[in-house]
Amino acid sequence: MNDIIKLLWIDDNLFHDLTEKRMALYMEEDIEPHFATDATDAFYRLRSEPFDVVIVDLRLPPGPDDMWETYRASNFQKYGYALLCTVLGEQKDNFDHLKETRFGVFTIEAQEENPELFEAPIRLAEKNFKMKTHAYHENAFIDFIRHVYKSWR
């Protein structure tokens, strides 16, 4: 039997435009989906439990926590990026339990617009980045999750 992939998908549109893709995950026997819709929600989910795969949208709302104050001042919008920096960078000591977690980015933006994702502290593998427009069919998205699961940071 295949491993069960414990997935956290972080996207503010999960309950709107992405409903069908989200429901498709429930039909996959090897995926145990969990969801978060803003950076604050995601931060606390990640701090409290391990996941095999975390898929992040870049343009996330910050959510209510004050930890994002420094970003707010400059009209920042990519709280997905801020979340990754926090979890994998400045606060990584609090996230030891995510050592085996593989991260992926699923976003409307192009890879070229986000070169910082591939540098420290995130160091995302290029193949773990997928544009939403390149995964119109839900199978492409599910394949992407399985690919991220098999990848190594």
Partner: peptide, 8 residues
Amino acid sequence: DNAALGRR
């Protein structure tokens, strides 16, 4: 969600 999942 129920409608979407039910349909699948």
